[in-house]
Computed example of a mutant assay.
Amino acid sequence: MPATEDDLFAFLKELGIVTSTVRHPALFTVADSQALRGDIDGGHTKNLFLKDKKDNVFLVTVGEEASVDLKQIHHRIGASGRVSFGNPELLMELLGVVPGSVTVFGLINDTAGRVKLVLDAALMEHEVINVHPLTNEATTSISRKDLIEFIHATGHQPTILKVSA
């Protein structure tokens, strides 16, 4: 059973990480997010759940307005050939979320460490980063430093590089 939002917040609290969360209607697109989330400072994310020909899985997290060349990204992230979007079943299996709720916080559910996390360098210039807390009905603000601490606590090593155009 995947971690719930409450499990996530308990894990963050256990790590001593302070966040703030704003509730809003479900957000499925960047346009929805910009229109419905309200005024929340910091960098807002867009997440790409990708897999390559050898079933390597990648979570690429970029700024919400970033442009990503999906035909070329495999060169940057170290994939074996071109990538495609992972299916909803694999997304649920590895990150414990449904499409529309993809988030770096889903790494709490990837206990086997199958997902390679790639954070866009431009996004990581923000002091505060905003992500879904395993649901697209809320936005959680976390400091860049604390986000990295969370990622390490899940057993993942983030790769920070320029993936957006």
Rank of each mutant, 00 (worst) to 15 (best):
T140I: 04
V131S: 03
R114F: 03
N56C: 00
R23T: 05
S67D: 11
E14S: 13
F49T: 11
F9C: 06
I129E: 01
V62N: 05
L50N: 11
G86S: 14
K116W: 01
H156R: 13
V30R: 09
A35R: 14
E137V: 00
L134I: 06
V118S: 03
D39W: 02
I160N: 09
L119G: 03
T45H: 08
E64F: 03
T154I: 09
V104P: 13
V97W: 04
T139Y: 00
F150P: 09
D6S: 14
L70T: 08
G78D: 10
L48P: 01
K51P: 00
H24C: 06
G106D: 08
F85E: 08
K46H: 06
L107Y: 10
L59R: 10
T103V: 07
K13D: 15
D39K: 15
S101P: 06
L90G: 09
G113P: 05
H152A: 12
E125H: 07
T139K: 01
G43H: 08
E14M: 07
A121V: 08
A122S: 12
A122V: 13
L94F: 02
L134S: 04
N130Q: 10
S84P: 00
V128F: 07
S101W: 09
E65G: 12
L147N: 10
L36Y: 12
Q72Y: 00
Q34G: 07
E5P: 01
V97M: 08
A3V: 03
R144E: 09
E93F: 01
K53I: 07
L70D: 04
L12C: 03
D41K: 14
P88M: 11
G81E: 04
G42Q: 12
T159G: 00
G16K: 05
H156A: 11
T61A: 12
L36Q: 13
V104Y: 01
D55W: 04
K54H: 03
T103L: 06
F150R: 13
V115S: 03
R82S: 09
A3L: 07
A31Q: 14
E127V: 02
F28K: 14
D146G: 02
A10Q: 13
R144I: 09
R114M: 09
G16M: 02
G43M: 10
D55H: 14
N47Y: 10
A165R: 14
N136L: 10
R23I: 01
S20G: 00
K162R: 14
L147Q: 11
K162G: 00
L50M: 12
V131E: 01
P88W: 01
E149T: 15
L95H: 10
K13N: 15
G96S: 03
V131R: 00
D55N: 15
D39P: 00
L107R: 12
K145H: 10
D41L: 10
G63P: 01
A3G: 06
L50C: 09
L15A: 07
T154W: 08
V131Y: 00
G113K: 11
S143K: 11
T140Q: 04
L123Y: 03
T21A: 00
I108N: 05
T61I: 13
T29Q: 08
V30K: 11
H152Y: 13
D39F: 04
H24V: 07
R82C: 00
D6Q: 15
E137D: 05
V131Q: 02
I17Y: 04
I148A: 04
K13T: 14
E137L: 02
M92T: 06
G81A: 07
